[in-house]
């Protein structure tokens, strides 16, 4: 699959909350069609804010992109409503899953298809597809979502997003609070979706080991700025990245300077 056509480009984005707190100062990266791109960084590095900017969800949280822009298939996302972005193929799985707790698993999935306003048959077909990727959800289809396990909720959230038949799936910390084996399972499914259906994926993760294992490329954020980008395989083998993200380095590098191998202990 040729990774040349740019699907999403984030260009020098700066963002604030409440016109006061600067959350991002200069984030730039791209996602090409058919790619899995990981957005790595510690807590508070700006991963979530970046993803919310991508889905134009910041205004709903009193946030604002003050500089730079984000283009999805050439469309400036700041000018589109989140619902329109979903229709044009960009959908996000929020941090913390955000399932509709008092709806059943199946109802949760169906809500994901509502935005497309497809017919009953179309929704049923999309449901079967989701169940094929996540057989667990079929077993639990009539259970209230709030009563299912964390892993099942994550699958529900991903399945719900898939119901809108996205081209770019954005995920915020899908591994959060889940057992390693479940995380493994979810990332494998994501990769299968990527390989078999050409779904492009942008995933923010604190768990850089897992993310770098499945991603094609990665961008590392630090204090609200993109500090390093590269092939996942390359980043995986760099000592500085390993040292910093495995917590062996006591001192994080300053923003905008590539992390030097010398920092490694």
């Amino acid at each position: 699959m040729g990774h040349n056509e740019v699907l999403l480009s984030v260009n020098g984005v700066k963002a604030t909350y409440n016109h006061a707190i600067t959350a991002l100062h200069g984030v730039t990266f791209t996602v090409a069609r058919g790619e899995i791109v990981a957005l790595l960084g510690a807590n508070g590095a700006g991963k979530t804010t970046t993803l919310k900017a991508v889905s134009n969800l910041l205004p709903a949280e009193r946030g604002l992109v003050t500089e730079g822009n984000i283009l999805f298939q050439g469309l400036d996302v700041a000018t589109a409503k989140p619902a329109d972005l979903v229709r044009s193929g960009l959908v996000q799985v929020l941090e913390g899953r955000h399932c509709f707790r008092s709806l059943t698993v199946e109802e949760n999935l169906v809500t994901g298809g509502l935005g497309r306003s497809g017919g009953r048959a179309e929704i049923a077909a999309a449901l079967e597809k989701v169940y094929a990727h996540f057989p667990r959800l079929k077993e639990k289809r009539h259970a209230l979502s709030g009563l299912t396990s964390g892993g099942e909720q994550q699958m529900t959230a991903i399945g719900r997003a898939l119901m809108s038949r996205p081209r770019l799936l954005v995920l915020d910390e899908p591994s959060m609070g889940l057992a390693p084996i479940v995380v493994q399972d979810i990332f494998r499914t994501l990769r299968r979706l990527n390989r078999e259906e050409g779904l492009s994926i942008l995933v923010a993760e604190q768990n850089s080991t897992v993310a770098l294992k499945y991603a094609d490329r990665a961008t590392i954020l630090e204090n609200g700025a993109a500090v390093l980008s590269g092939d996942a395989a390359e980043l995986r083998n760099r000592d500085d990245v390993k040292a910093f993200y495995l917590g062996q380095s006591p001192r994080p590098a300053a923003p905008n300077t590539p992390i030097l191998p010398a920092i490694a202990v």
């Binding site: 889905s55 969800l57 709903a60 949280e61 989140p82 619902a83 972005l85 979903v86 229709r87 959908v91 996000q92 929020l94 955000h98 399932c99 509709f100 707790r101 008092s102 709806l103 809500t111 994901g112 509502l114 935005g115 497309r116 719900r160 997003a161 809108s164």
Partner: peptide
Amino acid sequence: ADDQFAALAIGLR
């Protein structure tokens, strides 16, 4: 009614 932000994120109008 359950989760307004999630509803927004998945494209409900």
